[in-house]
Design a protein around this nucleic acid. Structure first.
Lengths: 341, 341
DNA sequence: GCTTTTGCTGTTAGCGGTAACATAGCCAAG
DNA sequence: CTTGGCTATGTTACCGCTAACAGCAAAAGC
C-alpha cells in the first residue's frame, strides 16, 4: 500500500502546519475552522486558504479531549437486515441534521452480551447521547447507562421501565388490538407464526398481548409455528404450508412480521386459497414492500420513522429537557386480508 | 433528564480514580485494562475489581490521542435501505471480528457532496482505514483519501482507477454477460427498466455494458423506463405495466435491480403473461427475497458478502500489504425467467 | 487628551490517556 | 558478596487541540 511507515514524508498535518502557513497562531486557526469567536475577515480567508491548500483535516480526537465535547450519538440496534431499523436510522439522521450531532450505529444481532460490548465500546468514545432498542439489557449495560450522565433514549418499546427516556409503542397493546380486530371479524381458529428469537422481546410482547385478548374472548391459539434464519419471505411460505397442513381448519394466521406474512400471502394466493374468506392474514410493521404485493396484507404500522425522529430530538435537547416516555399509537391497517367484521 | 449539570456529583471517572481505589499508579491500571505488559496477578485482580466496582469506562479519546492509534474503520455507503449494503456490512463485520477493529458506518444517499462531507467527518476521527462504495468521488474527496495515509478500499466496482485498493465486480462485464445470455436465448425486443439516479454509477455501467453487447449482436434497446423513490416492488409493477403498454411487442425486460424485477415478475404472473415464453425477465443482485417468490427471477449475484469480507481483510492488513485490485466474478443465475437457449 | 470600550490575536495550562524510559526488588550466577 | 538480569511498577513528557484569560491597537466616550 506504499503507505508512509515510520520515518518518512510528512507526518499528518496539525494546526501548527496551518498556523505556520498562514502566519497566525494555532489558536486563531482553531477559531477560524470552528467559526467561533471574532476573527477578522482578512485572516479568516487567509487561514481557510492555507488549510485547504494543505489539505488539512482537523483532529477531532484532540478537539474532543480538549473541549470535553463529542458530537456523536450512539445508536444501538439489533440488526440492519430487518428493514425496520434502517428506517429508524433515517428518522434519527433527519432529526439530527443541523444539530451538529452525528449518529454512529452499532449492531447487536439480538444478543444482550453483544449489546453490552457494543455499548461499552461506544461509551468509551464519550458520545453526547445514546439511543438503543428495547428496554431489556444486561445488568452491567443498565449500570453503564445510568452512570453515563448523558441522555439515554430506549426506543421501539414502552412496556417496561426505561433508564431515562423512552419512545415507542406498546407491543402488548398492538398484539391485543390485532387480536380484537380478528375476533371481531369472526375468525375463531387462529394460528401464530413467528421468529424463534428468545431475545426479540417485542415480538414476544405482541404475542402475549395477542393471546391475552384471545383469552378474554374465550379463545386460545389453535396452533403455532416458529422459524429462525433464512429468507423471511420463503420461510413465510414454508411455515404457512406446514401449519395449514398440520391444522387444516385454521381460519386466521397472525404473523410476527410482515415479511413472513407476505410469504404466507403469496403462498395462499398461489394455492388458490380464498383470502380473506377461507383464511385471514395479518402481519406487523407496515413495511413498504407490502405496497407492491398483489393484495394488501393487514398490518400495523410501528411508527418507525417517528420513533427515530423523536428519539433524536430528545438527545439533541430539542424537547422538554426532562426524561420523558413517549408512547405512540400504531394504526391498524386492515388491508384486504381480514374480512369485514 | 436530571443529569449532572455543571457543579455537582462526580465528574466522570478517570484512570486516577481507579488508580486511587486500587492503590497503584495510573500506568499500571492502564496496563491492566489493556492487557499490555507484565502485571502481577494480584494487582491485576485488584485493579479489575476496583474498575468494575466503580463502573469505570475507559476514555478512548484520550487513549487514541496518546497512542496515535484508533481502532475504527470508516465504512461509507450510499444507502441502508437497499439491502445490498447491510449485506456488505455483514461481510465487513465478520472479517473485522477479532482484529480489534470496529466498523463505523456513514451514509451518503448517493450524493457526492454528502460523501465528501461524511468522509471529512470520519477522517477527522483518524480511522485506521476507509472502505467506501464506488470509484467516483469529488476531487476534494479523492485528495483527502490520497492524503490520509491509511488503507483505502473502494468497493463494489472495479471499472475505473482506485485511489488505493479496490474490491468488486465489473458492472460493465455483468451487463454484457446478461445481454449475451438474453440474446443467446433468442430474445430480440428488449426493454430496460431502472432507477433514475444520476449518481448510481454502477447501474449506469451495467446498462452501458448491456447496450454494448446488444449492439454487437446488431440490436438496440427497444424501450426504457425509469423511476425514482417509492416502494421498489410497487414501482416494478407499475413500470412493467407502463412499458408493456407502450411497447407491447417487447419480449424481454431487464431490470436494474432485483426488487423492481420482483415487482415486474409479480405483475406478469398476475396478468397471466407467459414467463419466460412470451416475456423473459432478469434483474440484478441476487437478493435473498427472490427465494420466496413464486418463480425464480433470473439475476446475477453481486458477491456482496465476499466484497465486504475482502475489503475488511485488506484494511486489517491480513492480505498482501500492498494496494490490490480484486475483481470478483458474479455468477449468472438463470432462474425460471429466461427460456432455455 | 486620556480613559474606556471594542475587536482581534496570542499565551498558558490542561483534557485523560500512553510510549518510553527509569527504578526498585529479587534471584541466580560468578 | 557482588554483578547482572529479571519482573513489576513508577515517572516524565507528550498526543493535538481548546478554554480561559491576557494583551494590544484602534475606536469611542467624556
Amino acid at each position: 500500500m506504499t503507505r508512509t511507515t515510520g520515518t518518512s514524508r510528512r507526518r499528518t498535518l496539525t494546526l501548527r502546519d496551518v498556523s505556520e502557513a498562514s502566519g497566525v497562531s494555532e489558536m486563531t486557526v482553531s477559531r477560524v475552522l470552528r467559526n467561533r469567536g471574532d476573527v477578522s475577515e482578512a485572516t479568516r480567508v487567509r487561514v481557510l486558504e492555507a488549510a485547504r491548500a494543505l489539505g488539512y483535516v482537523p483532529n477531532k480526537i484532540a478537539g474532543a479531549l480538549a473541549s470535553q465535547r463529542v458530537n456523536l450519538v450512539a445508536v444501538i440496534i439489533p440488526s440492519l437486515s430487518n428493514m425496520v431499523f434502517p428506517e429508524v436510522m433515517t428518522g434519527v439522521s433527519d432529526a439530527l441534521e443541523n444539530t451538529g450531532l452525528q449518529p454512529v450505529v452499532g449492531v447487536t444481532n439480538y444478543s444482550p452480551e453483544r449489546e453490552e460490548a457494543v455499548l461499552y465500546e461506544m461509551l468509551s468514545w464519550r458520545p453526547s447521547g445514546v439511543i438503543l432498542a428495547g428496554l431489556e439489557h444486561t445488568a452491567a449495560a443498565r449500570a453503564m447507562l445510568e452512570n453515563a450522565d448523558i441522555p439515554i433514549v430506549e426506543i421501539m418499546d414502552v412496556d417496561g421501565t426505561p433508564v431515562d427516556s423512552a419512545v415507542g409503542i406498546s407491543h402488548q397493546r398492538a398484539g391485543r388490538q390485532m387480536a380484537e380486530a380478528i375476533v371481531a371479524a369472526g375468525y375463531r381458529r387462529i394460528g401464530f407464526l413467528g421468529t424463534m428469537m428468545p431475545h426479540d422481546h417485542r415480538a414476544r410482547k405482541r404475542l402475549e398481548g395477542f393471546e391475552g385478548a384471545l383469552a378474554k374472548a374465550g379463545l386460545t391459539l389453535a396452533d403455532r409455528e416458529f422459524y429462525s434464519g433464512g429468507s423471511a419471505l420463503l420461510k413465510g411460505r414454508e411455515m404457512t404450508a406446514a401449519i395449514l397442513k398440520r391444522t387444516p381448519d385454521l381460519d386466521f394466521l397472525y404473523y410476527s412480521n410482515d415479511m413472513i406474512g407476505a410469504g404466507g400471502l403469496l403462498y395462499c394466493l398461489h394455492e388458490g386459497i380464498d383470502v380473506p374468506g377461507r383464511v385471514g392474514l395479518a402481519g406487523f410493521n407496515g413495511v413498504e414492500l407490502l405496497d407492491g404485493l398483489p393484495r394488501k396484507l393487514a398490518t400495523m404500522d410501528a411508527c418507525r420513522l417517528e420513533i427515530g425522529r423523536i428519539a433524536a430530538e430528545i438527545v439533541a435537547g430539542k424537547r422538554t429537557g426532562e426524561s420523558e416516555i413517549v408512547e405512540l399509537s400504531p394504526t391498524l391497517q386492515p388491508g384486504d386480508t381480514i374480512r369485514a367484521g
